[in-house]
Design a protein around this nucleic acid. Structure first.
Lengths: 209, 209
DNA sequence: CACCGATCAATGATCGATCATAGTTCAGTC
DNA sequence: GACTGAACTATGATCGATCATTGATCGGTG
C-alpha cells in the first residue's frame, strides 16, 4: 500500500464485479450502444469484459430490477423496448411515493428547509446533465427526510434518475419552470402547508409525457 | 409424456431451482426453523438440498429483495431481525401505494365492483390462514384494477403477504372488523367516491402496529 | 496485560466446464 | 409446397473447483 492510499483511502470503491458490469451495461444502454430489443448474451459480455458468466448474470438481474432489460426463463435477456406505456406508468408511481414521502417528511422539515434550499441554489447554477442530477437530489432530500428507509429503498429501486432522464430526453420535457416549483414546495414545507404532499405529487406529474 | 400430462398439462410448474430454493427458505423463515439473526451459509444450504451454490445465491438475492435476509458484501446473508421499525415503515409505504392504486382504479371500478364483492364473499367464509390470503386478494384486485403494471410490480415487491402476515402474527392484530371496511370501500368505488383513495389508505394503516 | 502481526479456517465471489432447453436446419413424407 | 420430426446450434442454468476476503486464533512484544 502506497502512502498516497494511506492518506486518502476512504474513497476506495472495492465494489464487486457484478456492480461494475452493471454500470458498464447501463452506460451502453443509455448511450444507445445497446439498442432496445437487442439481445444481451451472458457469455459474450463475459468474454468481452474478461470475466466469467456469473457476475454478468448478477448484473443482468440488477438491470432487470431496474426494468432496463427483460428476461425470459431459459431465453436470456434483451434490452427493453421503452414504450410510451412504460413512461406513462412510471410517473404516477413516483408521484405517489413522493406524496407519501412529503406527508411523512412534513413534520421534520417544518421550519428547517435549509437543505432543500441548498439544492435549489445548486440547481440554479447547474448546466447540462447536472440539471437533472440536482433536480433529483432535491426530491431525494425530501424522500430522505421522510425517515422511512423502506420508502427510500422503494423509491430508489424505481431507477428514478435513469427513467426520468430517459423520459425527459425522449419527450423534450421542459425543465425551466421546475425551479420555481421547487421554491414553492420548499416554502410549503417551511410553513407546514398540509397541501405539500399533493403539490409534490402534481409537480412530479408535470414531468410525465 | 403420459396421456395424463397431455390432458391437463398447463398446470406444470417448470420453475428453476432458484425459485424452488427461495420457497424452501421462505418456509423455513416464516416457520421459525431459521431464526432471526441466523446465518445462511450458501454451501450449507446447497449441500443440504443437493444443489450447487449458484441457485442458492440466486434465491438469497430474491430473499434480500423481499427484505427477509440481509447481506453484507463478502460476509454472507443472515435472517433479518424483524424490528418494530421495519413493521412501522412497511405500512405507510403499502398504504401510499394502495392510495395511488385506488385513485387510478376508481374510473375503472365505478359501477363494476363485482370482482371486489366476490373477494368479500370468499373472505366471509374463510378461516385460518385463508383469511389473510383472501383479504390480500381484495387489495390485489384494486391494485390490478389500477391498470399500472409497474405499480403492481412495486406493490408485490414489498412482499405484501409475508410482511403483513408477520406483522399481524406478532402484534395480534384484530382482523374481524376488516370485512366491514372492505364493504365500505367497495361501495365507495361503486359510487365513485373521490375519498376512496384516502379510505383505502386509512384502512391499510389500521393493520399497522 | 493490552496491543500487534502472522497464520489459519470459513466462506463469499468468481471461474471454467457441463447439462438442459429453445430455436433452427433440413431431410423425409404426403 | 406444407408438415413432421430428428439432428444441430446457441445459450441459459447449473455444477464443481478455485480465488480472495474476512474474522478468529495465537504467539510475541512492550
Amino acid at each position: 500500500m502506497t502512502s498516497v492510499n494511506a492518506l486518502n483511502a476512504p474513497a476506495l470503491v472495492r465494489t464487486g464485479l457484478g456492480d461494475q458490469i452493471r454500470q458498464v451495461l447501463i452506460d451502453r444502454i443509455t448511450s444507445g450502444e445497446l439498442q432496445p430489443g437487442e439481445r444481451i448474451v451472458e457469455r459474450r459480455i463475459a468474454a468481452e469484459l474478461g470475466v466469467s458468466q456469473a457476475p454478468v448474470r448478477e448484473a443482468l438481474r440488477q438491470l432487470e430490477a431496474l426494468r432496463l432489460v427483460e428476461t425470459m426463463p431459459n431465453r436470456g435477456a434483451r434490452v427493453r423496448e421503452f414504450t410510451e406505456v412504460d413512461f406513462a406508468e412510471f410517473f404516477p408511481v413516483r408521484a405517489g411515493l413522493e406524496e407519501t414521502a412529503a406527508e411523512l417528511a412534513a413534520p421534520h422539515l417544518a421550519g428547517r428547509v435549509e437543505a432543500l434550499e441548498e439544492h435549489i441554489e445548486r440547481l440554479a447554477t447547474a448546466e447540462g446533465p447536472d440539471v437533472m442530477r440536482h433536480s433529483i437530489a432535491f426530491h431525494r432530500e425530501i424522500v430522505d427526510a421522510a425517515g422511512n428507509r423502506l420508502l427510500r429503498e422503494v423509491w430508489e429501486s424505481l431507477g428514478i434518475e435513469i427513467w426520468t432522464t430517459l423520459s425527459v430526453r425522449r419527450h423534450d420535457t421542459e425543465l425551466c419552470g421546475k425551479t420555481a416549483e421547487h421554491i414553492e414546495i420548499a416554502d410549503a414545507f417551511r410553513r407546514a402547508d398540509p397541501r405539500v404532499g399533493r403539490m409534490l405529487h402534481d409537480h412530479v406529474m408535470k414531468y410525465a409525457p
